[in-house]
C-alpha cells in the first residue's frame, strides 16, 4: 500500500512544515448536491476529506453531527448516493483523498465485500468505522488492505498500553487519536499539552504512522495542536452548515470560509 494518496497528503503537508488538515462533513447534508459542492469547495484548503455516511442511531456523535445526519437522512440520502458523490468528486479532484466514516450496521447491511468493491470502484482511500474496535475489526481491516483501502484505527485516552501497541502494530498508514473522553463536537476539556503527550506516546511506538487528532477541534483550538501530523475538524463544519441554513445563507461559501480560516491558523 505504499505511496497512497493519504500518505502523499501527509508528506506534502510535512514539506510545508504544517499538519495536514482533515475535514469531516456528512454526505447528503443538507442535500446530495449541496454536500458535493461543499466537498469540492473545501477541498481547495483541506488535505484529506472525511465523508460521513449518516446513521440514525449514532452512539458516539454529539449534537452537531447528529443534526447533520438526521437532516441528510430526512432528505433521502442512500449509500449508493454517497458512492456517487465520491465518484463525482474524484472525477475533478483525482489527487484528494477521501475517507468514508460511519457506523458498522450500514456496512453490514450493504455487505462487507460489496461495500468494499464499491469503495474501490469510486476510489475511496480510507474507511473509519466508529463502532468496530480492535480486535473485532481485524477481518474487515485486512479486507480493506486487500482492496488497497486504508482502514483507520482509532485510539482514545482510555486505550491501555498493551492495546495501544497491538493497535499500532495492526494499523495501516493512518491512526486517529481521539483527544478526550467525549462524543464528537464536545468542548475541548483537556489541555493541548496533555493531548500532545498522549499523541507522542503513539508516535514513539512507530514514527512512520501518520497520527491525526480529532474531537473538539475548532478555530479556537486548532493552532495549539499544530505539531501533530494531522488535525480533524468535523462538528464545527456541521454547525456552520446548520447556522447557514437557519440564516438562509449559502452553506457552501460559509463552510469554505471556515476551512480557509482553519488552514490559515496552521500554516
Amino acid at each position: 500500500m505504499n505511496y497512497s494518496l493519504i500518505s502523499q497528503s501527509f508528506k506534502n503537508a510535512r514539506k510545508e512544515n504544517r499538519p495536514a488538515l482533515l475535514t469531516y462533513t456528512v454526505a447528503g447534508d443538507n442535500t446530495k448536491k449541496t454536500s458535493l459542492r461543499i466537498l469540492k469547495s473545501i477541498s481547495k484548503y483541506a488535505d484529506i476529506c472525511e465523508l460521513g455516511f449518516p446513521h440514525n442511531t449514532p452512539i458516539a456523535d454529539g449534537g452537531q453531527i447528529q443534526t447533520s445526519s438526521y437532516r441528510a437522512i430526512k432528505n433521502g440520502i442512500k449509500i449508493n448516493d454517497i458512492f456517487s458523490i465520491v465518484n463525482d468528486f474524484k472525477k475533478n479532484k483525482n489527487n484528494k483523498p477521501i475517507i468514508l466514516m460511519g457506523y458498522y450496521n450500514m456496512i453490514y447491511q450493504y455487505g462487507e465485500n460489496k461495500f468494499l468493491k464499491k469503495c474501490k470502484k469510486v476510489k475511496v482511500d480510507g474507511i473509519i468505522v466508529v463502532d468496530l474496535p480492535y480486535p473485532e475489526n481485524k477481518i474487515f481491516a485486512s479486507k480493506c488492505k486487500n482492496n488497497k483501502i486504508n482502514f483507520i484505527q482509532l485510539i482514545s485516552p482510555t486505550t491501555s498500553k498493551k492495546r495501544l501497541k497491538q493497535i499500532i502494530k495492526d494499523s495501516h498508514e493512518m491512526i486517529y487519536y481521539i483527544s478526550m473522553l467525549s462524543t464528537t463536537g464536545g468542548k475541548l476539556k483537556v489541555s493541548p499539552k496533555k493531548i500532545l503527550q498522549e499523541y507522542k506516546k503513539i508516535k514513539n511506538q512507530n514514527k512512520y504512522k501518520n497520527v491525526v487528532i480529532g474531537f473538539g477541534i475548532t478555530e479556537k483550538t486548532i493552532s495549539s495542536l499544530k505539531m501533530a501530523d494531522g488535525l480533524v475538524v468535523g462538528s464545527a463544519l456541521c454547525k456552520e452548515i446548520s447556522t447557514s441554513l437557519k440564516k438562509r445563507q449559502n452553506p457552501v461559501k460559509n463552510v469554505t470560509n471556515v476551512v480557509k480560516r482553519l488552514k490559515n491558523k496552521i500554516l
Binding site: 466508529v130 463502532d131 474496535p133 482509532l154 482514545s156 482510555t158 486505550t159
Partner: peptide, 23 residues
C-alpha cells in the same frame, strides 16, 4: 470469546473509548 451467542448475536460494537471501561 468475542461475546457472540450462536456465533452471530451480541458482541460488543463499541467506540474505542468504551473498550477500557467495558473491560
Amino acid at each position: 470469546k468475542y461475546g457472540f451467542w450462536g456465533g452471530k448475536f451480541g458482541g460488543s460494537f463499541i467506540p474505542e473509548t468504551l473498550k477500557k471501561p467495558i473491560e
